[in-house]
């Protein structure tokens, strides 16, 4: 990070606001504050503040403990470490190259054989199997695919196409990623944009400008060409809150400070968060996260 002139920052773990993402559960404290699920919002506020005040626009990084309520398992612990960084004047494609060079640097530092990186496209992966682009797929089509493969498909998915796609990707695409190799999966369906910009892929199809990093079937990180339009951001927060209501999940206070900062102007940038514990698992060839955490949730 120092070599690349990326500035280390430290932002609050405790906040008045929380992510509205319906699938990212925050831990609420007894005085109505929230433990952050990622340092994304305050880091973007710092990027926006620098854009106003200084001539040189620094890139930023942070290593922070983050919290997700109830996420426990072989690859999950409710408290874990994120390495998150932002690159000004980069889009998701440039950030993919940047991520690759950091990983290569780490692999060399640990004297590990560099396995190389494969780039896959979400839509193409779906099309190869379903003969249909993800945005045109239906839950019943995916359900039939599971049935034909003799795999369990929960009826509780109902009409939620994105949930059906999530399970489809996990079962049939990600689980088939070659082991021991990095895969960058990019160009997500627009309906799964999260905090990324919408754009078009090399074939002109509408996509979300985001990617995920995998080592074999283990997800390591999530990268976005960051959405900078304050009104669009507010719209997504509101859509999230509506979805939360439908799902019976609690409403979350949207980060109005972030919206103000975006209105002031966020520079064109791309950002990524990497789960450091999972990276440690991969480097040390461990098969569960409790082997790289001193005391997991059950014993903390």
């Amino acid at each position: 990070m120092e070599e690349q002139n990326i500035l280390e920052v430290c932002t609050p773990v405790l906040s008045r606001h929380a992510t509205t993402d319906p699938h990212v559960p925050s831990i609420c404290t007894n005085d109505q504050r929230y433990l952050h699920t990622s340092p994304e919002f305050p880091m973007k506020r710092l990027l926006a503040a620098h854009a106003q005040d200084s001539q040189t626009q620094p890139d930023l990084y942070q290593i922070a403990p983050v919290f997700r309520a109830g996420e426990s398992g072989r690859y999950h612990n409710p408290e874990f470490s994120l390495l998150e960084w932002y690159r000004v004047n980069m889009d998701h494609n440039a950030l993919m190259t940047d991520t690759q060079s950091l990983l290569k640097h780490i692999w060399q530092a640990f004297d590990l054989h560099w396995p190389g990186v494969q780039v896959r496209r979400y839509g193409v992966e779906v099309f190869e199997r379903l003969k249909c682009w993800p945005e045109n797929a239906s839950v019943s089509m995916i359900k039939t695919y599971f049935k034909d493969a003799n795999k369990s498909f929960p009826t509780s998915i109902g009409n939620d196409l994105d949930a059906a796609l999530d399970l489809f990707m996990d079962e049939f695409v990600i689980n088939e990623f070659p082991s021991g190799t990095f895969v960058l999966l990019k160009d997500y369906p627009s309906s799964q944009a999260a905090l990324s910009r919408l754009g078009v892929d090399e074939d002109g199809r509408s996509i979300a400008e985001r990617f995920e990093v995998y080592f074999g079937a283990i997800e390591l990180g999530n990268g976005f060409h960051e959405l900078s339009d304050s009104r669009l951001q507010q719209q997504r927060f509101e859509d999230d809150l509506q979805k939360r209501e439908q799902m019976g999940e609690p409403a979350m206070p949207m980060d109005t400070y972030l919206l103000e900062a975006l209105a002031e102007g966020l520079p064109d940038c791309a950002g990524i968060a990497i789960g450091l514990n999972r990276l440690h698992m991969v480097i040390g060839n461990h098969d569960s996260i409790d082997q790289v955490i001193s005391f997991t949730d059950q014993r903390a």
Partner: peptide, 27 residues
Amino acid sequence: FVKPGKGQAFTRTRVRNLKTGRVVERT
């Protein structure tokens, strides 16, 4: 516990039918 970073979480189980003894996968 199965969960994409941004997306729906699932629980994939193997269960034994106590009447037949058969073990099946259920998500």
